[in-house]
Nucleic acid binder design. Sequence first.
DNA 1: GACTTGTTAGTCGGAATCCGATATAACGGA
DNA 2: TCCGTTATATCGGATTCCGACTAACAAGTC
Lengths: 121, 121
Amino acid sequence: MKDDPASFLPLSPATLHILLALAGEDLHGYGVMQEVLRQSDGRYKLGPGTLYDNIQRLTTQGLVQEVARRAVDRTGNDDPRRRYYKLTPDGRGVLSAEISRLETVVRDGKLRIQAAKPRRA
Amino acid sequence: MKDDPASFLPLSPATLHILLALAGEDLHGYGVMQEVLRQSDGRYKLGPGTLYDNIQRLTTQGLVQEVARRAVDRTGNDDPRRRYYKLTPDGRGVLSAEISRLETVVRDGKLRIQAAKPRRA
DNA sequence: GACTTGTTAGTCGGAATCCGATATAACGGA
DNA sequence: TCCGTTATATCGGATTCCGACTAACAAGTC
């Protein structure tokens, strides 16, 4: 995947949040669901359909890859059913590009919204 | 439509950019395409299918409404084929909510991206 | 042991959305 | 007159979303 990271943009909300969840640490599918829920304060809930569709697509695109099981997580659990995923360097690059793109969107957006009563400039 | 603005979130990239384009000034369909292209520095191009699908949906949702406006724009043009649209107050509220949601996403994202890579300094 | 709740992976199928190709036509300038 | 641009709109295939469902195992409770 030496494709330009920009060619993957913009990311859908689901894809963005999945990559974001994996940016912190490697996680298994169910863990991604929980992490997205946590990151959004319970406001954005990812269903299994969306999750696994995305994981599969992201894997074939080379942005995410499955990794050999980790021994234990920080809670000391080790459920053998788990399948862990991690961001590839390309995945991290795409996420990074999207974040900075969104940064300008937010900056522009705030200006535009405030100018609700345009005074001509 | 007294629905909670949060119930419309998150917005797809296409929807977000259309609302953003209309936040500055009332525009006609083709104008929205151009404005989105301009705002993204030519990186995000909206096709007519996506545009009109969205305008229709946003109109029935009450976030956008068509306005009768035959006045000239700043280039002095007055093409009678044009159909202008504007953001409703609800539309502005939804856009505002999405922008502030994205603000936290960006903030979190930046932390996560730089946090997970200090593989030796 | 039986019961219950939570964890974990996945499938399935319909709905929603995307999005380019295409159609149509009026515009403006060379 | 002819051409490139402006402008609205539809169509249909492809992609994505997303909840309901299946299936197990885990862990704690009664």
